[in-house]
Design a protein around this nucleic acid. Structure first.
Lengths: 158, 158
DNA sequence: TCAAATCGTTGGTGACACCAACGTAACAGA
DNA sequence: TCTGTTACGTTGGTGTCACCAACGATTTGA
């Protein structure tokens, strides 16, 4: 065993922070994200690349802006992600003959197969993250999440 | 209206991702984190610096490893954070006469005052994030969070 | 036709979570 | 006491994520 850096537990926090909802939400996210990222990494994927490939397969084929819209990624990040997919033979990129400003990005068979494999992985991670909850509790959690995510923080009807 | 990069909504995602718990948790975190970060930034603070200052005030004074333990930050990140606090006159750093490997980091009056101001800000962000929920729902959410976080993350050490 | 908008690319920014190596200093065992 | 090991702080990386600015090439629409 190396001298051991004795990495501090990233979940430890000062007293006034420990019980804050924002802190607990961050902790939950770190955990769920770490699990997902680890499992995706085993297949050579990053979270963004998975989203990208998913959007690509769902769309059949798309321009990079469209991929940006479908994944919530910035144009520049789409470019890099598509680079990775193309490099691995999971997608193709070619100029759009109808509008030569655009690229047409399309999944390959290998890409489609990879996504199918990832879907299984991703589903198992969901179960992993929610494991501590019963079916009932998962439902309740889901509904609370709905409420919290419901958009319009700015609209207070007078 | 500027040429408009037309930044995509970061919450948009492919179909198979949209309803995943991990994705929804990530969305909630992005939201709560963005609100907190924005409000802290108005006072020149980053999330880590707030945690650091909080740990510092709670401890009275501490070495940097101790700050790392109290905040969950890596040694190297503590170093940078303390740099910032010292540069702003919110903390002092001096070698520990009792163990010259250590630094003694201590909050200044300005640091203590800054933390008091931040505490108010942070509290208001909590309320903001939980705004969509009733008191009852907040309790339920809190308990579910407890369950989800109870599971031990640092296992897998056979 | 010519200015304006769009698309993709490149190259940054900052925050966050990590890890490796190094010099100094303290310590513990032989 | 000497000597090897550990601890501390610093420096300088890594990669992910979310962004933003500018540029060339292309298309549009006034």
């Amino acid at each position: 065993m190396p001298p051991s850096h004795a990495a501090p537990d990233p979940d430890s926090a000062p007293e006034r922070v420990r019980d804050l909802p924002t802190w607990r939400i961050a902790r939950l996210h770190r955990r769920s994200h770490a699990r997902l990222a680890t499992r995706l990494a085993e297949h050579g994927f990053t979270g963004r690349q998975y989203r990208l490939l998913a959007a690509l397969v769902e769309a059949g084929s798309a321009s990079q802006v469209e991929l940006g819209d479908r994944t919530g990624l910035d144009r520049s990040d789409v470019a890099g992600g598509v680079d990775a997919l193309v490099a691995r033979g999971q997608a193709t990129r070619s100029p759009d003959p109808a509008d030569r400003r655009r690229n047409v990005v399309a999944p390959t068979d290998a890409g489609i197969a990879a996504l199918a494999a990832l879907d299984v992985v991703v589903a198992s991670v969901q179960d992993d993250v929610l494991a501590p909850l019963s079916t009932d509790e998962r439902d309740r959690f889901d509904r609370l999440l709905d409420r919290l995510l419901a958009d319009d923080p700015r609209d207070a009807a007078p």
